[in-house]
Design a protein around this nucleic acid. Structure first.
Lengths: 136, 136
DNA sequence: TAAATAAATAATAATTGTTACTATTATTAA
DNA sequence: TTAATAATAGTAACAATTATTATTTATTTA
């Protein structure tokens, strides 16, 4: 069995993620850590992000465009993806704990976190009816 | 403004997706359409999948590994991603409609579909405690 | 119905996000 | 403090996706 050894880079990645409420990409994390470790490697960032995600210490969020995003595990949260402008917005819900409970009822595994991805057209894009593609 | 023109390839992609209950990748769709159009291009599949997703006729599902997956828009459904074995399992829930309603309450845009991604450790992996990585 | 227009295609090249490799450095256990 | 081994930086390789281009096909207009 492989045992973990301490690495200050890995600690910094965790620490950086905990300080952010958004969902940075690996490259964003890389750029920020370069301020502390000028010659840190992007591979190191990717390797540690995967490792931390596997350990359940952070979440990996796959988005519909661009690269994966990461955050420190906190509360379940929800996203709205607009199929027009491709933005990923946060979406507040009152009753998220209930979703977890509901899901656990029919499931043998351990549910640790959840993210609901809503899809559709955002408020801004509903306003403009100038679509770039028109279906007849 | 760009107007759509009919394409039999695009129709077939939609039709194929409607016939499946799983979530095929672009490459799977490509291989299946090759039976009908022996020299269809993978680029054509990707282009039409993106277009159909933009029109809201199909869903693009980003997974934590491998490529994106697609399905015809039907009912909301839910996935469980195991951080040990990396499988993407389907997860049945009784009360999905309520999630949509709850979310719409605080949101100005139009919600068309949703997928909840649960994360954790699946039943099989909970059984084995032989983790490949051990944290101290 | 035929010619003009413009979108869609197949084939291929290029790009992007991520992982694998290798020689060196850092951490830990004895 | 030395031996064992994990982690690193730097770089090459990889897979999924997108862009490019010349050609074909669908639609519009005469």
């Amino acid at each position: 069995m492989r045992t973990l050894k301490y690495s200050r880079q890995r600690e910094s990645i965790k620490e950086f993620l905990s300080s952010r409420t958004d969902h940075p990409t690996a490259v964003t994390i890389y750029h920020n850590l370069q301020k502390v470790y000028p010659n840190i490697s992007l591979g190191t960032v990717y390797r540690n992000l995967s490792l931390l995600a596997e350990l359940g210490e952070i979440n990996r969020i796959s988005t519909e465009e661009g690269g994966d995003r990461f955050d420190a595990v906190t509360a379940p949260h929800n996203h709205f993806y607009c199929r027009k402008c491709h933005r990923l917005l946060d979406l507040k819900m009152n009753d998220t704990a209930q979703i977890m409970a509901e899901a656990s009822a029919n499931f043998g595994g351990r549910i640790e976190s959840c993210t609901t991805l809503f899809r559709g057209v955002c408020e801004d894009c509903l306003g403009e009816d100038s679509s770039d593609v028109k279906s007849k």
